[in-house]
């Protein structure tokens, strides 16, 4: 049983000219194992900033507030320590890393997360099985990380890592964007498998309700202007599907 608590989190982005701009303006959210929280909101509302700040991207600085994973202060940890503590961010735009094979990368990451190298025989089998379920071409394992992957392949690769690394809390940053419906189903099944087997909590960031047909959230949070402005159950997503975000945009004016 794991809990991620976000308490009154304020954070800014560091711009190219090294000035900062505040994006998160007091976020409160608690995610426990087995729960799926959908974070929905219009573009530019700060959803992705929330995920990147929790993961520790150097472009974002925390101004105030807390993020605790099972009571431990995540914000004091380096990026890799956060991952080893059990956080996982499926990125919206995974980068290509020339010269590092996917096979080497996955094994190195698994070794780092578990604190010991995985048994070679079971590991190879696990990777192969997970790749098959995500309909990932077997040759990908020998290609360099994300290099030459299509948009859909990159997203599947993110979910492959999610399934193999078995985090306590997963942050999915617009994993649905750029996916056709078949790929969306495959990716969603992967997340659901991880939910069943790993007892993890999920923060599912999305602009659209489409992915919520395949990954069922218990909680829906509407994000606007750097904070949560509305919360509810799955019915809130249905309402957003019909009405869009206009209500929140208008209220903010």
């Amino acid at each position: 049983m794991a809990t991620l608590e976000i308490k009154d989190l304020h954070a800014s982005v560091v711009l190219d000219d090294e000035t900062t701009k505040q994006i998160l303006k007091g976020v409160n959210l608690t995610i426990s194992s087995g729960e799926v929280h959908a974070i929905m909101g219009p573009n530019g509302s700060g959803k992705s900033t929330l995920a990147s700040t929790i993961a520790g991207h150097p472009k974002y600085v925390v101004d105030s507030g807390e993020v605790l994973l099972d009571g431990e202060n995540v914000l004091e940890m380096s990026v890799d320590e956060r991952a080893r503590a059990g956080l996982f961010l499926a990125m919206q735009y995974p980068v290509e890393i020339p010269g590092v094979t996917t096979s080497n990368f996955l094994r190195t990451a698994k070794t780092a997360i578990d604190g010991e190298a995985p048994s070679l025989r079971t590991w190879t089998k696990d990777v192969k099985a997970a790749m098959e379920q995500l309909k990932i071409s077997p040759d990908m394992i020998q290609r360099n990380v994300n290099e030459g992957f299509s948009g859909g392949e990159k997203k599947r690769h993110e979910i492959l890592q999610l399934e193999l690394l078995k985090p306590k809390v997963a942050l999915l940053d617009e994993t649905d964007s750029g996916l056709d419906v078949d790929a969306l189903k495959v990716v969603s099944e992967g997340v659901n498998r991880a939910l069943e087997t790993n007892d993890m909590g999920v923060m599912l960031i999305t602009h659209y309700t489409r992915i919520l047909r395949y990954i069922k959230p218990q909680f829906v949070h509407v994000f606007h202007d750097g904070r949560v402005v509305d919360e509810g159950g799955p019915e809130l997503a249905d309402r957003l599907e019909n009405e869009g975000y206009d209500r929140y945009l208008a209220a903010a004016k």
Partner: peptide
């Protein structure tokens, strides 16, 4: 590159080694 690798739990020094080796081994 470093951020991506570190976000998967790989310590910074190891991530640096991976990226540099990858860069050259290509």
């Amino acid at each position: 590159h470093l951020y991506y690798l570190m976000s998967r739990g790989i310590p910074e020094d190891e991530a640096r080694r991976l990226v540099v080796r990858g860069f050259l081994f290509e």
